[in-house]
Design a protein around this nucleic acid. Structure first.
Lengths: 195, 195, 195, 195
DNA sequence: TGCTAAGCGAGACGGTACGTCCCGTCTTTTA
DNA sequence: TAAAAGACGGGACGTACCGTCTCGCTTAGCA
């Protein structure tokens, strides 16, 4: 179908020139399509790119499971993988996908499916291993990791700040692990603890 | 000096049409300046906007101190203020400033000075009050808040996700407070706790 | 068709501001056309103007035939008409048309057709009348007039020199009439005459 | 003096890029002069170029006298020299100099002095030789040649038309020689001749 | 000897036009 | 009969000159 060929061109061009420099004109040229044909299908550049990403083939870099033997090590490994994922695309692309994707659960899912374990999710295997080791209480939930890690690393990436092992260690120790530990019984009455 | 007048126009236009739609042409028209004059000073739109923000007057919306009587309330109030700050500019603006600014400590400081208490910092008064109330241990440090709150809220803002009181409560309870509590003596040996 | 409207504007502007001051921008403004539309059709200003002149309607100032009763009078009248024609356009226009036109027989013919009897040609009626009066020998040919008159008058015009009746009389008496008379039997053996 | 250096740059640039493409900016750059300095001296580009040509050194290509043994041969040789002279400069330069120069007798003389025998004048030696041979009557005057040759050849040059020996022969035979012969006793009553 | 004033370079300035590119809409042609 | 091909008005891009102007910095000459 025509649409598929067009979207392949979109992805090619995205890779070559980035999101900002991608134009309808160039897509039409590359796909030997009429601009009218493009506009008939997608109202905006964003729509077109989103469609292209949705249609894109699952990028098969399925990495293996994470298991370093400790929660701390696992979390750092996951963060590193996530950071790698982010730095592999260009900044605008990352941003565009985030900007577009998280408004669109559909696309969000497509990206996850397409890109495999990105480090944005905290795998159940890591959780259960940590609980088994006694590092996390039974009932701990992945929310803190998933809410925090992506945001913090993306912004550091956008801002050109490093996310080296020192920083990641600090992040894991002072934020992620305390929050994960507390996630089993959320919102305990504060008084109770210190009384 | 000519530069000041031009930058005022830049800020006006930024407010009116946003970053993406801001053009050299429009700035030149508004400032009754030649395009050559603009290009002589700033190579790119980003440079020009950054200069405008740096030069911009302190935006006097100095809000009062936060003191709701509880750490939880204070944190939620700070997050709300931060969210408001972010939503006051348009998305691309926020992003641009972040993208530009955090690479440039100068600009970073300028923004903070210009915009007053944005909610991006955890005021010492809030910390000490919480410690006085026994909500936080002596020695607690603001790092978790400052590292997390900005990132998470900005991304939610960029993604059009709500940051209502329900969400903020959850964020505060499951992430911020546990992490702040743990910040006094970071990296305790994990075993020690659960043994 | 769009092209015709545009070329009309070109001719208008040519008349108003002259060739040198004519710009693509102004044509686009006047014709409410995009500059791209102009550049798509004509690579250079000269091309555009040449096209406009080619397309231009026959300028209806068809003057009547010349017949003053003597060859001398007719020739002076023709020169005056030619001079008037030349001075009606601005210098650069004249030059441009000559420069462009005479390299392009097509355009050359178009100009002649468009502008009617310009005085650049020696009408057959003038020739035959002169022959009838005995002022020219049978077999006289218009070449000397046509080769000379245009060149000389154009250059005087370009150089701002006058071409008044005194000058024209001189030109006719000392150059045109002798040459026309000699044109019947060209290249007579020189000796024969003075022997 | 500063002016001399500047005018040298003008001549250099004239030679390199031609008249049309010559700009005040470029002259200022090359001469390391301020634009104000240029404008203080010359109001227009034409003025500046004219000044440069006036100041330019005499170009010493003084060619020898012409003497082929016949008037016809001499005239053709002179025309060829004139044509060569014209084709040595670029079209716009020729035109500019003519346009500027012939309005300005000063410059006109400067050009003649600077460029030596250009073929634009009919040397007295050629005239007297022709009279001696009986090819021209006593009292013949050079006006027809000088008025005609320059104009006709310049226009052919501007129009890219050839001025080969065939054409020159025709020009000499049908126009120049008859007119020169008639120049001794101008304006004979026409009737007288054919009666 | 010290001061003043002219001339200079440097280049900023508001403008205008350049020629290119892309936008989003539209007709016209081809298969 | 839908798609390609691409013309169209619009408008921003970044560059180059225009002609005017204000700066300091020489560098005299005059005091």
């Amino acid at each position: 179908m025509r649409e598929v060929e067009i979207l392949e061109c979109v992805l090619e061009l995205l890779g070559e020139v980035g999101y900002d420099a991608l134009t309808f004109e160039a897509v039409a040229r590359r796909a030997k399509a009429s601009k009218a044909t493009l506009y008939r299908r997608w109202e905006t550049k964003r729509d077109m790119v989103v469609a292209a990403v949705k249609a894109g083939p699952a990028s098969v870099h399925r990495a293996g499971a994470v298991d370093t033997g400790s929660l701390r090590g696992d979390l750092i490994a996951l963060c590193e993988r996530l950071d790698t994922t982010m730095r592999s695309a260009d900044a605008t692309m990352s941003l565009m996908l985030l900007h577009a994707g998280l408004q669109d659960p559909d696309l969000c899912r497509h990206i996850e499916e397409a890109t495999g374990p990105t480090g944005a999710k905290l795998p159940a295997s890591v959780m259960s291993a940590a609980i088994g080791r006694g590092e996390l209480p039974v009932g701990a939930r992945p929310f803190p990791y998933e809410e925090i890690a992506g945001s913090v690393l993306l912004l550091r990436r956008l801002n050109g700040l490093p996310a080296g092992s020192e920083y990641l260690g600090h992040l894991v120790d002072t934020i992620l692990i305390p929050a994960l530990r507390a996630s089993a019984n959320p919102e305990p009455p504060l008084r109770a603890i210190f009384s």
